[in-house]
């Protein structure tokens, strides 16, 4: 038991300091609450465990005939006290949790707003100026940011562990999440509501940069000066790589090399030679034609890709030999 306890304390110390340093005021406050909860839990567990360990040793049976010898079978005062003390502790935890939750639910008026769409299995971020990114987004530090989130298919959940916040992303309604980062850096985002095959890969990366860097990034057109195929290659990263390789190797979907001009057979019994229109349809409305041997699981990209990105993707796929 001792090594286990030691181990857990060590792991616990790492939790709060090395691996997940708090980046927001909120996270710092939450850690204080968490330390309080863990502290009081450890203390109360130790007290009870010491009591029953002591009794276990002290009152071992000495002879076969021996009976217990406690004279009392209840004690109202004692029972009142040991109900009341936990009640007080729980009440403190409850109120403390509530106070923080109150903050968590109230984004400041002047927050910078970003729309977020969850979709099996990627995250799309849309900024006020129309800029769209997938699985990667930038926010300025020292400025409150509010994410306005919804899902295009099933439930997802947007979780930023370093910020100690998460919120389910629900189709049909908006939910929101806000934070104010005090430090620059790259932070991991997880999907924490089970959403099928790609659930564990539905990750995003958040970059916190200075306001200046952020403004430059926002104004910058990432496709400026690139050829169509290069635009396609960029658009492909993140959006398509969960399910497709650029070789012949299968993932959830087929490998895409050598596709153009090849013959394709579909689950509805039809077949065709791959051309630009087929590729366009495959990306926008993939469930129209399902390639034999694959599930109908591709994300429909209608409405999330610009016309430029779409042409880019098609040109890029054509270059995969």
């Amino acid at each position: 038991m001792i090594p286990l306890l030691f181990f857990s304390l060590k792991g616990y110390a790492q939790t709060s300091t090395e691996k997940l340093p708090p980046v927001t005021d909120y996270a710092e406050k939450l850690d204080t609450l968490y330390h309080f909860l863990v502290g009081i839990s450890v203390v109360s567990c130790i007290l009870v465990i010491v009591a029953f360990a002591y009794f276990s040793i002290r009152y071992r049976r000495k002879s076969e005939k021996e009976q217990g010898s406690a004279k009392v079978s209840h004690n109202t005062l004692l029972e009142f006290i040991w109900s009341f003390i936990p009640l007080v502790i729980f009440a403190v935890a409850f109120v403390w949790g509530w106070i923080l939750y109150y903050d968590f639910k109230r984004p400041p008026e002047n927050s910078l707003e970003i729309h977020v769409y969850g979709q099996m299995w990627n995250w799309t971020f849309v900024y006020k100026n129309g800029k769209k990114t997938t699985n990667e987004f930038y926010v300025p530090s020292h400025k409150p940011v509010k994410l306005i989130m919804t899902s295009k298919d099933v439930l997802h959940s947007f979780f930023i562990p370093t910020f100690r916040i998460k919120q389910d992303v629900v189709p049909g309604i908006y939910t929101s999440l806000w934070f104010k980062a005090n430090r620059k850096g790259k932070f991991q985002v997880f999907c924490t509501e089970f959403c099928g095959t790609g659930h564990a890969n539905m990750l995003a990366r958040m970059h916190v940069v200075s306001l200046k860097e952020w403004e430059d990034w926002l104004a910058h057109d990432p496709y400026k000066g690139l050829s169509l195929a290069e635009i396609g290659k960029k658009a492909f990263q993140g959006r398509c790589t969960v399910c497709h390789t650029t070789t012949k190797e299968k993932r959830i979907g087929p490998g895409l090399s050598g596709l153009m001009g090849a013959k394709r057979e579909f689950t509805n019994g039809k077949s065709l030679m791959v051309d630009e229109n087929y590729l366009r349809e495959s990306i926008l409305n993939p469930s129209e034609k399902i390639v034999v041997g694959f599930p109908n699981q591709m994300t429909p990209f209608a409405g999330t890709l610009s016309e430029e990105e779409l042409s880019g993707l098609i040109e890029y796929i054509k270059t995969l030999k």
Partner: peptide, 28 residues
Amino acid sequence: MGFLFLFLIGGVTGIILATIAADVHLHD
């Protein structure tokens, strides 16, 4: 005795999870 020990830990961590702000981080 095993029950008492483990249930105790299960119980106190239940209180941590019932604390709403802590659960926002720990949920799922």
